[in-house]
Computed example of a mutant assay.
Amino acid sequence: MPDRPEIVCICGSTRFVDEMRAANRDLTFAGVIVVAPGEADAVITTGQKAALDVLHLRKIDLADRVLVVNPGGYVGESTSREIAYARAAGKPISFTDPV
């Protein structure tokens, strides 16, 4: 038995916030520690977006694996960057939908 639960970082477009919340819930109830993108209630600035993008890469660093939430196979520019970062770090990556 592991010393701690698995840590999964959720990645995906913010347009899929409901799907990411569902994945977070399902993983959490399965005993997984989930790190996910931050959410904002309002439009964010370019500077805030850049800071959040860097923060999300640190979340990938913490994770044992990455789950990409990609309904319909959609993977945008930011998510593609995160996937490349995770691959370079040797993190296993899975997708909710075929790419």
Results as ranks from 00 to 15, higher is better:
R87S: 15
S80W: 10
A89M: 15
I33M: 11
A86M: 13
C9D: 00
I93K: 01
D26C: 08
R65I: 05
N24R: 13
D61E: 14
L52R: 14
V54F: 07
V66S: 02
L52T: 05
N70E: 05
D61T: 10
C11I: 03
G31D: 03
A22K: 10
E39I: 12
T28C: 07
D97R: 01
R25S: 08
K49T: 11
T45H: 10
I7E: 00
A40R: 07
D53K: 11
V68T: 08
S80P: 05
Q48R: 15
C11N: 00
P92H: 05
I7A: 02
R87P: 09
P37M: 14
S94A: 15
G76T: 14
N24F: 01
P2A: 12
T79Y: 12
R4M: 03
A42P: 01
D26F: 10
S80E: 13
L52E: 11
V75W: 14
A40Y: 06
N24H: 09
E6H: 06
A22E: 12
A88N: 10
A51M: 05
G72H: 12
E82D: 14
G47H: 12
S80A: 11
S78Y: 13
R81N: 06
V17M: 06
K59P: 02
A63G: 04
R87F: 14
A36C: 07
A36N: 04
I7H: 03
P37Q: 14
V66E: 00
G38N: 07
R81G: 08
G90K: 14
R81V: 06
E77V: 12
R87I: 14
P71D: 04
A51R: 15
V75R: 15
S13Y: 08
S78P: 08
G90V: 14
N70V: 00
D3I: 07
S78K: 12
I44K: 04
R87H: 15
V17T: 03
I83T: 11
K49G: 11
A22C: 10
A23R: 09
